[in-house]
Nucleic acid binder design. Structure first.
Lengths: 192, 192
DNA sequence: TAGCAATTTCAGAAATGGCTGAAAAGTCGG
DNA sequence: CCGACTTTTCAGCCATTTCTGAAATTGCTA
């Protein structure tokens, strides 16, 4: 592995973290490398930096493309594919969450719904369904929240995250204010 | 595997989903089984329901205990350990998030901080650090949000999640209102 | 369409992770 | 402190995943 120590440490760590998720080590390393690279890299450059086989890199890049996590670029007069991660780290987060939801949450929700439709014969099954219902409702709640929040532009999203639980205070304030008679600031203070 | 079809389907699915995360299949299955069980189960009951070896169950339960995901109970006149998941599904969510943060986010933040302290020799390293800084700040933002939100009681948490996109409107309103001169409703309209 | 450059595929090797049975260790009542 | 019961440990086997080199494919240009 031919990398500045700082980059190498990061790449190795990211590879390990990748393993803890469903992602294999090489894929994690490729992504980490692209993330910190100052310019797009082609497959051979990745090979020499990571010291893995050409075919391994090819498969890794294919997987990252399937996840929409890398972008493909070309240079004039050069046939090779060059890869980058999005400049905007928030775009990366959005893609990551979106893809994980698609692959993990949605199928689970589908399954839970199917199981909840089934006729429960025994008491044991009836209890299991009650539990699955709890899980289903939980997932729906998160999915609904996510569907809403993903539409926020990044600035507002950051604003929201920075506020944290202080949002509660805003909500309390809203409760107080919307109970005021009349109008404020020329528009109705009600929330539609 | 000796289980009602409904339960079996869920257990198998959960086992597969477990694999996609760092969790091994058996551990996922044990957890799913305990989650839908109407009463605490001992190791041998898990063995006969899942059809895996006693030692495998023992290891799985140990791992779940390390994750604080199961609780241990005893019955009078019975030496065996009986296991359950918490009744309250929100407690499960909280534990899961807490443990994943501890194992994944915190070490990553530590590493990022270390790497950001280092002296960057080359231009390449300087650029890498700028990228790592972005990632660090992102993680810090999430960690801060989480530290804040985890303290909410479940009712308020659900309220927050249910609110969804309306949060944006509340924030817009806050923008307008906090720009108003003077006081409203007897308290400052500013947020602490 | 021949020839070259780049990428992908794939069968098998290598590595890793998971599972088991047998044995050890722990725990309790008598 | 014995004997029965329960849980844990672990060496080795098994299954799955990852990785590689070689061959096939794709796609471009002359």
């Amino acid at each position: 592995m031919q990398l500045p120590p700082l980059v190498q440490t990061f790449v190795l760590h990211f590879g390990e973290m990748g393993s803890r998720w469903g992602i294999n080590r090489t894929v994690g390393q490729i992504y980490a490398l692209l993330f910190v690279a100052e310019r797009p890299l082609n497959a051979d450059e990745i090979v020499e930096r990571l010291g893995v086989s050409r075919s391994n890199v090819s498969m890794g890049l294919k997987e990252l493309q399937a996840w929409n996590l890398v972008r493909l670029q070309h240079r004039p007069g050069d046939r090779r594919d060059y890869f980058t991660t999005p400049e905007d780290i928030w775009q990366i987060v959005r893609t990551l969450v979106e893809e994980r939801k698609k692959r993990e949450v949605d199928p689970t929700l589908t399954l839970l719904r199917e199981l909840l439709m089934q006729e429960a014969g025994t008491e044991e099954e009836r209890h299991a369904q009650a539990r699955l219902r709890e899980m289903h409702d939980l997932f729906e709640l998160f999915a609904g929240w996510y569907a809403d929040v993903r539409r926020l532009d990044t600035e507002r999203l950051v604003q929201l995250l920075t506020l944290g639980s202080k949002v509660q205070k805003v909500l309390e304030m809203k409760d107080r204010l919307t109970r005021l008679p009349g109008r404020i600031g020329g528009r109705s203070a009600k929330l539609d």
